[in-house]
Design a protein around this nucleic acid. Structure first.
Lengths: 103, 103
DNA sequence: CAGTTGATTCGACTGTTATCGAATCCGCAG
DNA sequence: CTGCGGATTCGATAACAGTCGAATCAACTG
């Protein structure tokens, strides 16, 4: 027994994070934001990578924000996003522990 | 630029895996299965941890199976499940890379 | 073969989510 | 203050996902 099973209440919040990642658009959004860490990434740049409309992308960004996986900051006319490393690391470790356990 | 953004097609399959994790019941199921690696875990054991009915749990197990995160094997009257470490490790690495990128 | 127990499949219902167009908000430039 | 471009919010709709009860399947047991 390597890992302890997650508690019923932890499962709810953790599942919310994973659910946020459970959409191709959001996964690519996060990936694009993470890939260009350091540079400034405004929503207008992100829009170019998708066929979806601006309201739809904005909605997906909000889901990622609510899950605590990214944060957005308004500067001048533009909103810049960046990832929250600790949140992603938490999820990564959970999966890694489960992967280790199953060996 | 540490990570490459995931491709549009990869995003679909990866998102399916994360979506499978995006439910508290499924997250706990995976966790319970991983935690008791080595021992035999049959569905009847898992049922005790939930208030949901057997058909519901069976449905969630199927989602996890279809996502390739667990595999089930029938022996005698019981079906035993175990995790697929490589699948979990893939997801873990993706998140870890994005976390690193955002530092 | 008939019955029992474990597990899944089926059909239906309910609540949630992805998506869009229209409207609104927020900063900035005349 | 008015107008403009970027971003979000609102309202509606259509597709999807979680849940259950009933029916079915699968393997053992008498």
């Amino acid at each position: 027994m390597v890992t302890e099973p997650v508690s019923e209440s932890d499962a709810v919040t953790l599942a919310q994070s994973f659910k946020a990642l459970g959409d191709p658009v959001r996964l690519r959004l996060l990936s694009l934001i993470a890939a260009r860490a350091g540079e400034e990434v405004c929503v207008c740049d992100l829009l170019d990578a998708f066929t979806q409309t601006a309201p739809t992308i904005s909605h997906h960004l909000k889901v990622l924000r609510d899950a605590g996986l990214i944060i957005g900051e308004r500067r001048a006319s533009w909103v810049y996003y960046r990832v929250v490393p600790s949140a992603l690391a938490t999820l990564s470790r959970l999966l890694d522990a489960s992967a280790m356990a199953g060996t």
